[in-house]
């Protein structure tokens, strides 16, 4: 474990972009945890006399149409958006990794059918699927999580399947069986740990995608409802004022979204280097 940490440190030193992404991710998580304590204003209480003020020393990101401090709302939204993304991704990761690796290991007809189903699902406009799911399940935050998890699932199944498939005839897999392990033990103890690094990369990239999806759904008015602070809703509310020049209503939540996704994407690329033991010297 300590060698992993040492290696991580070595990679981060040699790779400023990944270091930036790691720092950004850490910051995001810290903000999500500490939001209620560090926000300068209450994110919900409106103050109409102070509406639509541009960024200033008092309000770093300006105020919205109800006079609420946008910066405080951004901080509060971080917690919600990250929770949605993390919950959705962990659901789909656990289910997808297990289903995918067993299918990939067993092979045969079942695997072919699952593979085909996943291919069809992946090529289908997933955002539309998510919309339909939220519509059918009801307009609630849990349902945004479920919908996002479901549209992420095929990626994990496919990924785990492919990764296990290339390894299932490797000598060390057969050696594990000659060494007295059952099929199930081989999948759980040998194959899953081996595909985890690659999956971690996928998780990181998917977190960004999940945030975009959840924000997109809220932007449309699905899922999270006003006045809850959420990046997508904030953009949707600000959209009305873009034609009249109040750019900060859209730009700051947009920037927050962008930075969050950027951090996760860059971190995903960096993780690839850190977790690959072959890169360790």
């Amino acid at each position: 474990m300590s060698s992993t940490l040492r290696h991580a440190g070595w990679v981060l030193r040699g790779n400023p972009v990944t270091a930036f992404a790691a720092a950004g991710t850490f910051l995001l998580v810290a903000v999500a945890v500490l939001a209620p304590w560090i926000a300068p204003y209450d994110p919900i209480t409106s103050n109409v006399s102070n509406a639509l003020k541009p960024p200033s020393a008092a309000h770093w990101a300006g105020t919205d149409q109800l006079g609420r401090d946008i910066f405080s709302r951004l901080l509060a939204a971080t917690r919600l958006d990250l929770t949605i993304a993390a919950a959705a991704v962990s659901l789909s990761f656990v289910a997808g990794a297990v289903i995918g690796s067993f299918c990939g290991y067993v092979g045969g007809r079942l695997d072919r059918w699952v593979g085909r189903l996943v291919d069809v699902l992946m090529a289908f406009p997933l955002f539309v699927l998510a919309m339909a799911l939220v519509a059918a399940l009801g307009n609630r935050v849990e349902n945004i999580i479920i919908a996002t998890a479901i549209i992420n699932l095929p990626f994990y199944i496919r990924f785990a399947r492919a990764e296990v498939n290339v390894r299932r005839h490797a000598g060390w897999v057969e050696a594990a069986r000659a060494g007295g392990d059952s099929h199930a033990a081989v999948v759980l103890r040998f194959l899953l740990p081996n595909i985890l690094p690659a999956m971690a990369v996928q998780i990181s990239l998917n977190l960004g995608w999940a945030i975009l999806n959840a924000a997109g759904l809220s932007f449309l008015g699905l899922g999270v409802q006003a006045p809850t602070p959420e990046w997508g809703i904030m953009v949707a509310e600000g959209a009305r004022f873009i034609g009249t020049g109040q750019w900060w209503l859209v730009a700051f939540p947009g920037l927050a979204l962008m930075l969050a996704v950027l951090c996760f994407n860059l971190l995903g690329d960096g993780l690839r280097d850190i977790l690959d033991p072959r890169m360790r010297t």
Binding site: G171, R177, N194
Partner: peptide, 22 residues
């Protein structure tokens, strides 16, 4: 794998790299 004979029959694989869990 659960048979007592498992221990008696062992195998050495072709590609030494491919036969060790990375």
């Amino acid at each position: 794998h659960a048979s007592p004979r498992r221990r008696d029959i062992q195998i050495v694989f072709q590609d030494p790299h491919d036969s060790l869990n990375p």
